[in-house]
Write a protein that binds this DNA or RNA. Structure first.
Lengths: 357, 357
DNA sequence: AGAGATTGTAAGGATAGTTCACTAACAAAT
DNA sequence: ATTTGTTAGTGAACTATCCTTACAATCTCT
């Protein structure tokens, strides 16, 4: 709790920490003493507020003195990694080609990249966070990741054994959602982060906690039907529903994934982006209503998403939900650009090692 | 934890409790001793399993020796209350007319009904649970309940002051969901209970916890648009989208609420129920996918819901979600009949007073 | 009959919080 | 210059909630 406050509120006095956490000043003093000994926090001198009473000594998290490794496996062609400090600032980047490497070879490629990152780190490393596509459970076991050929692979345990560092693994959309929560200023009461890339995924946080679902497959919203046969006459710009890689027809992914969007833009189809936005709004309206979300955040190429598509989606969401719901809702682009999953992977470590979210 | 195990698994030995909770036998012994002194549990003699070692003495929750009061405010015309034992069995029922009583008068009516229930109880009463329509926060403050004219009314605190008993208040659909979870055998990993009556509401439990949402308005799914203008040609049986009480048009409630369903049945519209089911499936598909739900439970008149409507909804859900999602999903009627909210209100007390869920 | 397993309890200890009482350091009023 | 009231931080003693260790009681199996 103390680290959590220090992380979010910046330097704080022990007395203020006590008020914020509900613990007593005594307990907070003890905890801070322990954290000082660990080197995680430092005293920063007296606060300058000219109030009555003894001036407080500020205590601050040493965010620049510790680092975290993050790896993003979303891209099929390359592994992307970075070293970040606890502020979420990227200190160094490393990449490695990964085309064709699957199974155990892919695990080794990730481990190699991590070793490069360890060398690139300039401060003590708290741990490693990995954002992977596919279905990942709480223990960091990748239950399914078709593009890497992983099934029931204990990725966190394997990397931990190779690197001798704490390793945390999560789904890439879930990581992006955590990143948005911690570094993008999203509202923990209810956020859905929609990642639009080769595929479409979503990470959802409700009441402060990530939604996992029965089979750890929550957020798999890319394969909901978004386009019916009957729509071909109605939403003309979108044409006939397309066959999806999943074998079904008219999935959200067939109109919203980046390749589909690029094709339409290349074909000069001006209204298509707005039409996709309307479809997205129709799909999201029930989710937003059911969960009373505060925010829906879009993550992906802004030239495709942040325009007619987003505006149409927002208008559709407003018109298809009741005011109590839509008034509480914001639909915006991610504040983290392309690094959402990477920053989220770093948050996995902060959360796992320091209890900071 | 000990009460939780005893509640769900029935009589258990101290040693088995220790294994189930992860506590030591010593700690469990101490806790059981305290619970025995409180009268909440009782020793039931030695277990009859002929294994090696000293025979275990079974300890059981005294579920018939304690009672709980539950009040359901869903019905506009009458207040319905009951006394239940901890098994969820209804021991006595009481009702009171409430037509026209709003504001403070409505609160007094509820308190009067509770006093009747106190008199009807034959065992010590642990507390009072209230299921109310409208938006209710965690503290039992009714933020909005249009039909009673309540705004920011601290119902739990008011009743507690009048009755001198612990009082817990929750939204009626949320209560129905908790009831289904505890007494209906629903899967805590992900359930949505859809209550169909004068209006349409939903209670959602994900990863074991009730979803509340930003403005405590989660589950307000009755006013999502389910019928567009363009649908008038497509889903002919439903006709043109109707104006809704909320001021918008084509809300799910305009086709799925009980009055709308009865009208269609009375008009002899054979295909209408299936058409409504299809609309429901379309609305639920994104929610089910996003949350990877294990169950969707329908609560309401079975003669309307448990037939073509449910089957069509199930088929539509299957066809519009990917197999990973739909294979994990079950769509069924409630196991609790009309008493879902009432049993759920009782669960509020068990949860609040004993920590049992 | 003895060995081994299992249940439940007694005694004592570790941990993480609390309350109470104190000193230190300041602002504002006298 | 002094007093008063407020706030910050710490030491000591206490409490709740776990734990470990040790042991008696009672069973099955050989």
């Amino acid at each position: 709790m103390v680290l959590q406050r220090l992380f979010h509120d910046g330097p704080t006095s022990r007395a203020d920490l006590a008020r914020a956490t509900g613990l007593t000043r005594v307990t907070v003093s003890d905890l801070v003493t322990a954290l000082l000994a660990e080197g995680l926090v430092a005293e920063l001198g007296p606060s300058q507020t000219g109030r009555v009473g003894k001036p407080a000594t500020l205590v601050g998290l040493r965010t620049r003195e510790h680092q975290v490794l993050a790896v993003d496996l979303t891209d099929d062609l390359a592994l992307h990694g970075a070293v970040l400090d606890l502020e979420g600032e990227i200190v160094a980047r490393r990449s490695a080609p990964s085309a064709g490497r699957t199974g155990d070879a892919a695990v080794d490629a990730v481990a190699d990249l991590c070793r490069e990152l360890v060398d690139a780190a300039t401060r003590p490393v708290l741990g490693v966070g990995v954002a992977s596509p596919g279905v990942v459970d709480e223990q960091g076991v990748v239950l399914q990741a078709p593009n890497r050929g992983w099934v029931d692979l204990p990725l966190a345990a394997l990397l931990n054994a190779q690197l001798d560092l704490p390793v945390h693994v999560a789904n890439d959309a879930d990581a992006a959602c955590l990143g948005e929560l911690t570094y993008g200023g999203a509202d923990g009461a209810g956020v859905l982060v929609l990642t639009v890339g080769q595929g479409v995924g979503a990470g959802i946080v409700v009441d402060g906690a990530l939604v996992r679902g029965t089979g750890h497959a929550a957020g798999e919203i890319g394969h909901v039907t978004a386009l019916d046969e009957r729509d071909e006459t109605d939403d003309a710009p979108l044409g006939r529903p397309q066959r999806c890689a999943c074998g079904r027809t008219g999935c959200l992914e067939t109109v919203l994934a980046v390749p589909a969007l690029r094709r339409r833009v290349a074909e000069g189809d001006a209204d298509a982006l707005a039409a996709v936005g309307r479809r997205l709004g129709i799909v999201l309206a029930p989710v937003v209503s059911a969960l009373n979300l505060a925010e829906v955040v879009l993550s992906g190429p802004p030239e495709l998403l942040d325009g007619p598509l987003r505006l149409a989606a927002r208008a559709t969401l407003r018109s298809r939900t009741m005011p109590v719901i839509s008034d509480a809702l914001q639909l915006r682009m991610t504040a983290l650009g392309e690094d959402g999953a990477l920053r989220g992977a770093a948050v996995l470590v902060l959360s796992g090692q320091l209890g900071v979210t």
